[in-house]
């Protein structure tokens, strides 16, 4: 949700500024439209979508594979065989520290996948579990 707010808030401010600039020259209807759009943008992109995204995040760590399902409008499901996991790390940022949240990132030779918004203990447990399950070295 914070990420959504982070980019939607400046956009809304931009809309309000544009509305302010327009009032002098153009018919006021357009300016009011822009003013009305600002909270709508924040509401949808900053609050509703992130909430939906958070509600639809699913993950399952099984013995042989990691199964990820996420996305609000576009739903993605990804399967990573455990033997392909190269390394796994848990991360925190200043922002996530405010809410005591951590994310875990799984790296493969092809790319990386981030599982966001975990509790501190949950992230550590998941990281250690994946590391343990993936310990069998990959045959490259």
């Amino acid at each position: 949700m914070l990420n959504g707010l982070a980019w939607s808030a400046p956009l809304a401010i931009g809309l309000l500024v544009a509305a302010g600039a327009l009032t002098d020259t153009d018919p006021p209807a357009l300016a009011w439209l822009l003013r009305a759009a600002a909270p709508a943008v924040v509401g949808v992109a900053g609050v509703a979508l992130p909430l939906l995204r958070w509600r639809t995040w699913r993950y399952e760590i099984r013995e042989h594979e990691i199964d990820l399902l996420h996305g609000a409008l576009r739903v993605r499901r990804t399967l990573i065989p455990m033997t392909r996991v190269q390394h796994v790390e848990s991360e925190r940022t200043v922002l996530s520290d405010l809410f005591d949240l951590r994310s875990v990132t799984v790296h493969t030779a092809a790319g990386e996948h981030k599982i966001p918004a975990l509790t501190e203990g949950g992230a550590a447990a998941m990281r250690d579990r994946i590391a343990l399950l993936a310990r069998e070295p990959d045959v490259v």
Binding site: R74, V75, R76, L79, I80, A110, G111
Partner: peptide
């Protein structure tokens, strides 16, 4: 040797 595979579908596709 596949590293990962997956499906995805947008609202309209679903």
């Amino acid at each position: 040797r596949l590293q990962e595979h997956g499906t995805s579908a947008s609202l309209l596709q679903r």
